[in-house]
Structure formats: C-alpha cells, structure tokens
Design a protein around this nucleic acid. Structure first.
Lengths: 214, 214
DNA sequence: CGGCCCATTGACAGGCATCAAGTCCGGTGG
DNA sequence: CCACCGGACTTGATGCCTGTCAATGGGCCG
C-alpha cells in the first residue's frame, strides 16, 4: 500500500464531501487524481452499458480509489458513510510508480489492491446460493470492519447496498442475516454491529451454501 | 495493447502446449513471464480459498495474460483450444512499462486490459436472470470471435466452461441457447457457429432479462 | 464398432424474486 | 417534549426460475 510521505505538500488531508451521497462521478472520465481513504466506507458503483446499476465494490480505510489503470475510472465512487480521504494527483502517483518499478523491479502493490475488491466480488457472486454469497461476503469484509470495543465490529452498510453487491434482493439479505443469527453463527446486537461466532460454520456455508435449518 | 516490436529477440513465438488442457499453473505463484495470445482461446480459472473452481475470464488473440499486477497471478490459465502465444519475461515487460510511463505519462494500457475481462464478468453475472447473463455474455465476446466466411462466427467454447463463467449450470446454458434460436435472435447452424441476428433484442434481454416465450 | 465426453431434453422440487403489509428508527417541526 | 413522517428493515405469501437428477442423442477417437 502506497502512503504519501508525511509532510509532503502534495497531499491534502481533506474531508469532503462530509455527508454520505455522491462523492464524485468518476466513471468514463479520465482519471487525474488518486484518493486514499482514511476513514469511512465508500462504494464503487458501475453503470453497465445497458444502464443497469450495480454496486461492484466496497472500500475501507487504507484503500486507494481511482488508480489510472485503464485511462478511465471503471466506477463511480460514492460515500456510504462520512468520508475522510487524501488526494494526490496522478502525476505524483506516476512518479512513485516509476520509482517503485525501477528500484524494486516491481509494480506498485497498490495497482492490484484496488482491483482486488472487484475481483473478489466476482468470486463471491459466482456462488449459486444466496447463503454462500452472504457468508463469503461477511468473511471477506469482516477483517476490515472497525472494532467496537467488545467482540463486535461495526458493519455500517445499508442492506440495499449489500444486496446490490451480492446481486440479490434486500429481502434475501435480511432473511439470510436472520438465519445466521438464529443458528448462532453470528451475533448482531444491533443492525450495524456484528460478531462472527462460528467462523468454521461460516466457511462451510460459503462453500456448499446449503440452506440453514429454518 | 502492447505488441513486441517485430524482430526483437526477446520474444519467442512458440506454440505450447499445442493441445487443450492445462497451460500452466499460475495462481499464487510469482509471475515472471507475460504471455500474449496469438491464436486460440484460453480460460482463466480461479480456485477460491474454500476450494471452489470458477472460470473467471476468457482470453482471445491479442490479450495479454500473466501481467504482474499483484505479484501473484490471480488465476490459472488453461487452453480451451490449441494455443499460439508469445512469451516475454517480466523484466522486459517492466522496462516497457517504465518507458511508456515516462514518455506518454500514462500506464501501459495493457495493465487494465487484462483486468477488464474479469471486471466484465462481475457485471455480467450480476444480472439476476440467466437469460440476461447469456445475452450479455454473447454480446461481450461476439466482437472477438473469428469470422467464419459467411455471417457466422466461431464460438469455440464448451458449454461447461460458459456455464462456469456465468455461474450457472450447463443445462441452463443449453436451454437459453435454444430459446435464443427459437426466437430468431441468433442462428447456430452448428454448435460452434453463431450469428447474432437481432442485436437490439439481445441488448434488451441483457437488461431486463425477462423470459423468452417458450 | 464401442467407449467416452459433451450436449440435449424432460421432470421435479426447492430457492429466491416479487409483491405487500407491518415495524422500527432517526429526523423534523410544532 | 411530543407527534409526525419518511426511509430502511422485517416478515409473510406466492409463483416462477433454475438447479438437480436422469435418460437419451451425437460426435470424436481409439
């Protein structure tokens, strides 16, 4: 993960937009900036050529958004919660890339890092059953969720976004959450707090995805 | 698309393995070579952490495989048909990248190009109905299929691979093909020959995905 | 000619999308 | 402080889609 050196004036530590909603339309526009998320959660939204809207990725603190991998952004970044992020111009980013390429003989790890969430989504929604998708999704985001003191972590995502990400309906997401709770695999004292109690059971479900008893 | 200059000795024009099957296990191994496909079709296969096998991409002539985007390959490349490809070491590829970065001020377009198919799959299997997925898939690969003289093009992919790519069953793929034929949207004189007759209808199906009359 | 793999077709049951109604929650304004 | 309101979540009922199983057909190769 590339981090701008402290004290460099190239980087701005700004917090905008403070409120959830549209961050900036990035899709199909030339990318001239790179953003590194510091606090909050953002969603990557893609409008397919036919006009369908899909949430294709979630971004957490530490993720970089808007890398110039394909001349154009592939998605629109939207704020799910309040965001704090660092912006740097693509020119600066390019120089860092060349340095890394020459010194280490390797690409910036960040190049793959932004693509990974999108790649991961493909694997997750490739599962046949909704139960498997929900479990695989929870397992994948769980390490990135901020701790809430006790064992629980904050899952600050609307179910509508989760549903779009998993290519299913909000109702199905809700029902799966309920089944996971009823079967003691997770604890959700509040809607935005979650704790995985039985990781092994979750992983098993993520594979076979057979329905839980209900 | 990056193409090695003709006559450069860095590049080998070899044809191996000549027969379909395992090309080379690339997943989770450091990538030291880049391959450019010249003839044939390859499939990208990913084994998830839980052990599930999924076809996550198809590669056609002109595509590059094995770019060092994330230190490790994300999938295993397998030959679907006989393959001819060009190999170049990652060192050489890196130099080309630095040159491109410095001269044009942009990344090699190829970096995004390899990721695009994977990205596209996410959008395709994000659709709810199988009809929409099949139509979106056909529309996406159609321009890359070699022409067969008359209007038809060669679709040299086993339905089992298509099914895995679309996260569905081979039977459903077969049934969807049949419906498309019966409704006059496509013509398939043979199993490996296809012609899209009604592009507009296909696009409409790719969006709403409502079932065809049957 | 026989065996094998893939494609095809049918029957069936289960999962899930959809619709609809009810509940919970935060925000807003009186 | 409280009533109101809108949005998101929850839960139930229903029907279609599609995954699964099974059997058949067809092409390719030995």
């Amino acid at each position: 993960m590339h981090r701008p050196a402290a004290g460099r004036t190239l980087c701005y530590d700004i917090a905008m937009p403070p409120e959830p909603g549209q961050l900036r339309s990035l899709q199909r526009e030339p990318s001239d900036h790179v953003y590194e998320l510091r606090r909050g959660i953002a969603r990557g939204v893609t409008i397919s050529h036919e006009g369908e809207r899909q949430v294709t990725a979630f971004f957490f603190p530490g993720d970089q958004i808007g890398l110039p991998v394909s001349e154009c952004y592939r998605f629109t970044a939207e704020a799910v919660t309040d965001l704090h992020y660092v912006r740097q111009t693509r020119q600066q980013w390019n120089e860092a890339l060349i340095r890394s390429c020459r010194d280490d003989g390797r690409l910036l790890p960040a190049i793959g890092a932004e693509q990974d969430p999108v790649f991961q989504r493909g694997l997750i929604i490739g599962r046949s059953s909704i139960a498997a998708r929900v479990c695989a999704f929870l397992l994948s985001v769980y390490p990135r969720l901020p701790q809430a003191g006790d064992g629980t972590r904050r899952l600050d995502l609307p179910q509508t976004d989760i549903a779009s990400y998993l290519a299913t309906s909000p109702e199905s997401v809700c029902r799966q959450f309920r089944k996971l709770r009823d079967n003691g695999l997770v604890a959700m004292p509040r809607r935005d707090l979650i704790e995985i109690l039985d990781r092994g059971g979750m992983q098993a479900l993520a594979v076979c995805g057979r329905a839980l008893t209900n």
